[in-house]
């Protein structure tokens, strides 16, 4: 009798151990597909790109498989390139210009749509249209809108007698970057409106009612109630915006191809050009790694920001 009990207890413990091990195995199996996908789709390209940037990876490499190790030479070549500083400045202007206007206009529109009025839902969904268009289509359309002689924008401005001479939107090195930023703002507004609008919807109405009793209306309500409650959403929008904008390629390629006279070259277009026009894949990889490092910097800010928000 006693022995029997003992064996069952031992057996139960054993089976529990086995079940425990099975559970761990199941957990690992559940994680495995995601891990494999991460390594294959994220890890491999990043590592490969890092290696490539340290090699003389050119046309020949594709045929012979030989890519001599050159250390940091690709980095020094691209950094000392006469276009590098221009590209850095343009990237900064493009990112800051796009983000600040996208955010400001986006916030304005989100506040506007937060006040319920007839057809506001319909209008808000129409606002998403720029986001739904393929970027190549948007840039081709804008290219014809901004055409100097027969583009509809110059034609309308001339017809309204707002300008006397057609503005060389995409033809002048001093205007082209502004035009490209303008188009990118147009594309980015829906993203900002959507996220900020949902952030506004989260703010409980009671806060405003209580605020009203204390005399916080209009601008004061915005500064003391809306903005503090919207801050975490706003920081997400801004950080994601920076990471999206800093690497924009298709819009610039479609509008100006980096021209005129390299006036709209950014790190992204330079990296593309090095890789796919000059076939200097090593240098292209070096540039894109610099770009990734910059994005990473902002990603760290973002992660720290959100962690603090959670802690609060």
């Amino acid at each position: 009798m006693v022995t029997l009990t003992r064996t069952t207890v031992a057996g139960r413990a054993k089976s529990r151990g086995r079940r425990h091990r099975g559970e761990t195995l199941t957990k690992v199996l559940f994680v495995l597909p995601a891990a494999v996908a991460m390594v294959a789709l994220f890890g491999y390209p990043v590592v490969k790109n890092l290696l490539m940037s340290l090699q003389d990876y050119g046309l020949k490499t594709f045929f012979t498989g030989v890519a001599p190790w050159v250390g940091l030479q690709n980095y020094s070549t691209v950094v000392t390139d006469k276009l590098f500083s221009d590209a850095m400045v343009n990237t900064a202007l493009f990112t800051i210009g796009s983000i600040s206007f996208q955010f400001a206009i986006g916030l304005g529109l989100a506040l506007f749509f937060h006040k319920k009025f007839p057809l506001s839902g319909l209008l808000r969904s129409l606002l998403l249209l720029p986001w739904l268009l393929p970027l190549i289509v948007s840039s081709a359309t804008w290219r014809s809108i901004l055409e100097q002689d027969s583009g509809i924008l110059n034609r309308s401005l001339m017809g309204l007698h707002l300008i006397n001479d057609p503005v060389p939107w995409l033809n002048s090195p001093s205007v082209a970057l502004i035009a490209v930023i303008g188009v990118n703002i147009w594309i980015g507004i829906p993203f900002n409106v959507t996220l900020l609008y949902s952030g506004l919807a989260e703010i409980p109405d009671e806060l405003y009612e209580a605020g009203q009793l204390d005399g916080a209306t209009g601008w004061r309500a915005f500064f003391y109630i809306t903005w503090p409650n919207l801050r975490s959403v706003a920081s997400v929008v801004l950080m994601l915006g920076v990471v999206y904008t800093i690497k924009v390629l298709d819009i610039i390629l479609g509008l100006t191809g980096g021209g005129p006279a390299n006036a709209t070259q950014t790190l992204a277009t330079q990296s593309y050009e090095k890789s796919f026009i000059d076939f200097k894949f090593g240098q292209g990889a070096a540039l894109s790694n610099i770009l990734i490092a910059l994005s990473f910097l902002f990603a760290i800010f973002y992660l720290r920001g959100t962690r603090r928000a959670v802690d609060e």
């Binding site: 060389p168 995409l170 033809n171 191809g257």
Partner: peptide
């Protein structure tokens, strides 16, 4: 000369 004189569009660069 062709572009400056206005005989060709400034858009030729695109």
């Amino acid at each position: 000369d062709l572009v400056k004189s206005g005989s060709a569009s400034k858009s030729v660069i695109n």
